[in-house]
């Protein structure tokens, strides 16, 4: 097999460290990207806390919690795929990558179902928007604007992740990853876990605001 070491690096270890660092720097730009939306969310939640509480409680918390669990399990299967790659186990690697793909697909399917529900209930910001129990409809619209922007961008990241994992499965089937060279699997794992972390914050912030208040 041809060497996977690029000429600008001295060792495979140095090459891998550089790739990992590069990925982390990209992820930090992503943190700032989502950070802007989390900041906007915080500012408006503070300003319109009553409308946000009612709007948040209209989301289906059971589905949200189950979807969170699905995504966490997909992170587990992803880390198991990375482990299999490190050990050079090709069959196990492909198996866990396919499992990650399936769990990611389930998450997106549930998300699509939830969005569809919003359209049917007129909870999508626009002329026909209506949410029961909120005096200022525009404040509730703001919550749902943030909801769609944040879950939408998260879902977009998931779709990209699904694409990357499909590509990895294709490469793995060709036997491109070994115990010595598996950086793409490792890097894709970092991305997948990052997207998981974003959801870890989105779930309580969007679904669990003031659930204890009497409706």
């Amino acid at each position: 097999m041809a060497s996977t070491l690029q000429e600008q690096f001295d060792t495979e270890a140095q090459q891998k460290d550089a790739s990992t660092l590069g990925m982390w720097i990209f992820l930090i730009t992503e943190v700032m990207f989502f950070g802007g939306m989390f900041t906007a969310y915080t500012v408006y939640r503070r300003a319109y806390s009553d409308a946000f509480a009612v709007a948040s409680s209209s989301l289906n918390v059971t589905i949200g919690a189950i979807n969170t669990a699905v995504l966490l399990v997909s992170s587990f299967t992803m880390v198991m795929a990375v482990r299999a790659a490190q050990l050079g186990q090709r069959r196990t690697l492909i198996l866990f990558l396919v499992a990650t793909l399936i769990f990611g697909g389930i998450f997106l399917g549930v998300k699509a179902y939830e969005w569809n529900e919003k359209f049917e209930q007129h909870h999508v910001p626009g002329p026909s928007f209506h949410l029961e129990g909120v005096p200022q409809q525009s404040h509730a619209q703001l919550f749902f604007s943030l909801y769609f922007a944040m879950t939408g961008l998260h879902a977009l990241h998931m779709v990209i992740g699904v694409g990357i994992i499909s590509w990895l499965i294709w490469l793995a089937r060709q036997g491109r990853f070994t115990a010595e060279y598996n950086t793409p699997v490792d890097i894709a794992g970092l991305y997948w876990h990052f997207v998981d972390i974003i959801w870890i914050f989105l779930f309580p912030l969007l679904y669990l605001i003031d659930r204890h208040l009497p409706k």
């Binding site: 982390w24 700032m32 900041t39």
Partner: peptide, 16 residues
């Protein structure tokens, strides 16, 4: 990598 990560989180804290 750890240092870069902490630096990144620091910027998020500044933003918020």
């Amino acid at each position: 990598t750890k240092l870069v990560l902490l630096g990144g989180l620091l910027w998020l804290v500044i933003l918020l």
